[in-house]
Every structure is written in C-alpha cells, then in structure tokens.
Amino acid sequence: MEQIGIIREIWRYPVKGMAGEALKEGRLVAGAGIEGDRLWALRDTARGEIQGCKFRPELLGCDARLRADGSGHVDVRFPEGDVMGSDDGDIHASLSALTGRSSTLEALRPLGDGSFYRRHKADDHTWFEELKATFARLPGEPLPDFSGAPPEFSEYVCQPGTFFLVTPFHLVTTATLARLRASSPAADWNVRRFRPNVVIETAPEAEGYVEQDWIGRKLHLGSARVACTETTPRCGAVARKQRGLSEDASILRSIVREAEQNLGIYGRGLETGCLRVGDAVYLI
C-alpha cells in the first residue's frame, strides 16, 4: 500500500440537497457511505418526486444536523436562522414557502417502495431535458455522457432505498482544488460547494486531478476500505449561493474548461470502519 495523504475533513448531509455538518470522526458502512448521510429528502407533492439542490437550489441555504439521541430525526436551520426539527409538523409548510412548491420532508423508505423514488414524467423526453438543464452548460460546453447509465436511471430520481443519485460516497483532494484555484484565483473554491464526504489532503508534491487515477482501485481510510468507482461530473449547483458563499458562475466554467467537467470521484464502502480527521489514507 502507498500512503497518498491524510483525511483532512469528514462531512455528512442528513438532508439531501441541504448543507451538512463537519465531523471529527464518522463510520463508513460497507455497501454504503458515511453513517447518517442522506436520511431525509424533500418531496414535491404535485410532482410526487424527491428533490435535491439540482432542482431546488433554495435548499442550499439550509443546513441540517443529525440529532445525537439516536432518534434519526434532524434539525434544519433555515436561511434566516430559524431552526425546526423533522418532527415539527410545521416544517413542511416552511420548506414549501422556501422553495415555492408544495413539499414535504420525508425519511427514507424501504427498497421495495419503488413508487416513492420514481421520476416524475409528463412525457418521454421532458424529464431528460429538465435534467440536462440542471448542468447549466453554455453553448459548446459538453454534458456528461449518460449513454452508460443503467436502465433504472430513467425511471428513478435516486437509487431506490437511498437518496443517492449515483453512489453513497464522494471524495475530493486538495491537489485538485489547488489546481483549479490556480486556474481561476479570483473564484472562491470553498470545498463546501462540492459536498464531499471526505477531503483528502495530498502530499505537497501531488499535482493535478490525482483522484481520477484512482478509479477502479481501492482506498484504505482509517479502518475502512472504499472502492473508487467513477468520476464526478459537475452541475450548476456548485456555482449556487449558499450560506456564506456567493453565487459564482466562474466556478463551473473553470471545472468544465480545465478539468473535463469533473471534480472529485464517487465510491462505495467495501469494509465497515471508522474514519477520523488526521487518519492516513492508503491507495491499495
């Protein structure tokens, strides 16, 4: 094994599409991701569809924290500072007002409840046009290649039994952020824009988009192991306004131009274990 860095930050996002919480340590679960990640999501009642920050960017103005009492409930802080719990009956009306759409905050449901995770489809093509629009590309800029997507991608807005679109784990490296910062130094490359589960601090000599070379390999992080599965093409959400971060379209333009539209990689837990800030990261 080769040590390629240390864990600099650990994040989880208890509500899909909202800002999350930084952790000193976390538990990575085999076949999944960080424990407590994406346990809740907003559901548009008219469309009957789960929503994230791609379609409801207003969610990025909220942050969510998982309660430590083991109840599974979360507390949501709204843009104006008000805090409401997932067990507060008024939270649905507050989220509806925030997004301008009648919505409910919903907990995960079992894998077998397929209708809960199904895409809204007015016809055979509008859903795909809506999805492409969320990537906010300018004329001449490439879109992600959807040709290899599994058949269920067109049927479900996220993987049934989860609130994840692709895989349940996502990482970025300081090397990638440094390369992009050098390409556009006036932009704010705050890592919160990219919603990783883990930020790996790479060695000073590591340059460029190093994690792209890890796809198909495995990482040992703390006492857990992760399969690096695929790259992460970026949508317009990275440029959106968040708490403490202004809207900045140059972020997305730089990623598309300089990094082949990818920043970070996806993964999946292979072996359950604990992660702590400062733990060594090894490439297997």
Rank of each mutant, 00 (worst) to 15 (best):
D279K: 01
G222N: 05
P196Y: 08
V166P: 02
E141L: 01
A68L: 14
A175N: 10
R193T: 06
E141R: 00
R47W: 07
T174Q: 02
R268E: 11
G112F: 02
E2M: 06
L263V: 13
P160M: 02
E152T: 12
G267H: 03
E247P: 05
A19E: 13
W11A: 03
N190G: 13
P14Q: 08
G17N: 09
A68R: 15
C235H: 01
S184A: 15
G148P: 02
A46N: 11
V191R: 09
A206S: 13
C274W: 10
G26H: 07
C62Y: 00
E152D: 15
Q3I: 13
H73F: 09
R179Q: 15
R240P: 05
E58K: 06
T231C: 03
A97T: 14
N197F: 04
A178T: 11
F116P: 00
I200P: 06
M1N: 05
A237F: 14
G61C: 05
Y209M: 15
D124G: 15
W40Q: 04
A133H: 14
G33T: 01
R12L: 08
L283E: 07
L98V: 10
V198Y: 06
P168S: 11
S147Q: 04
R217G: 15
A182I: 03
N262K: 13
L59F: 01
E49H: 02
E260F: 05
S115V: 14
A239V: 09
C235F: 09
S183V: 10
Y117A: 01
R12G: 02
A224C: 00
I7A: 08
P142L: 02
G70D: 02
Y156A: 06
D44Y: 07
A149P: 04
E49N: 10
R257H: 14
S94W: 06
L95K: 07
F164M: 05
L143Y: 15
V210K: 09
C53H: 07
D145G: 09
P150M: 07
A122F: 04
A239D: 02
P79L: 03
G85H: 03
M18Q: 05
P139R: 06
S103Q: 01
V198R: 02
R253F: 08
A64T: 02
D90E: 13
T232P: 01
